Simulated scan of single mutants.
Amino acid sequence: MKLLKKAVVHSISRKSFGKAFDIACGSRFSKLFIKPYIRLYKVNRDEIRHPSQYKSLADFFVRDICPTLRPIAPGEDVVISPVDGKIVDLGFAKEHKIILAKNNTYSIPELLSYEDVEAFQDGYYLNIYLSPRNYHRIHMPFSARAIKHRYIPGKVFPVNNLGVSTIKDLFAKNRRTCTVFETAAGCKFALIKVGALGVGKIVSSFQVGQEITKGAEIGRFEFGSTVILFFEKNSFLPDKQLTANMEIKMGQKIGTIRIQ
Rank of each mutant, 00 (worst) to 15 (best):
188 K>A: 01
185 A>E: 00
247 E>T: 15
130 L>C: 10
51 P>D: 08
193 K>Q: 09
210 Q>I: 02
115 E>Q: 14
206 F>T: 01
232 E>H: 06
74 P>C: 05
12 I>L: 07
41 Y>A: 07
185 A>R: 04
75 G>F: 06
239 D>P: 08
210 Q>D: 02
243 T>K: 14
258 R>G: 01
147 I>E: 00
5 K>E: 04
260 Q>L: 12
136 H>T: 11
35 K>R: 14
90 L>I: 09
219 G>E: 04
15 K>L: 12
181 F>N: 01
107 S>E: 06
74 P>T: 02
80 I>H: 02
236 F>Y: 02
229 L>E: 00
24 A>V: 11
113 S>P: 01
71 P>M: 09
212 I>L: 10
146 A>E: 00
205 S>D: 06
27 S>P: 11
156 V>G: 00
96 H>K: 14
164 V>H: 05
14 R>E: 02
95 E>N: 13
95 E>H: 14
121 Q>N: 15
257 I>V: 07
44 N>S: 15
133 R>V: 13
247 E>I: 14
51 P>R: 13
167 I>K: 02
108 I>N: 01
244 A>P: 06
255 G>Y: 01
84 D>C: 13
162 L>S: 03
1 M>I: 14
108 I>R: 04
190 A>W: 01
207 Q>D: 07
146 A>P: 05
174 N>Q: 03
188 K>N: 05
79 V>W: 00
190 A>F: 02
111 L>C: 04
17 F>Q: 02
242 L>I: 10
191 L>W: 04
223 F>E: 00
1 M>H: 12
93 A>Y: 01
164 V>L: 15
19 K>L: 12
40 L>N: 05
56 S>G: 11
101 A>V: 13
25 C>N: 10
129 Y>T: 07
243 T>I: 14
246 M>Y: 06
24 A>R: 08
15 K>A: 09
70 R>I: 08
62 V>A: 11
159 V>I: 06
224 G>R: 05
144 A>E: 00
238 P>Y: 06
181 F>H: 05
81 S>V: 09
79 V>C: 03
181 F>E: 00
101 A>K: 11
90 L>K: 07
162 L>V: 05
58 A>I: 12
177 T>C: 07
242 L>K: 03
31 K>T: 10
151 Y>W: 09
29 F>G: 08
123 G>K: 07
147 I>N: 04
161 N>S: 15
57 L>F: 13
146 A>Y: 04
253 K>F: 04
203 V>H: 09
49 R>Y: 12
66 C>P: 11
106 Y>I: 09
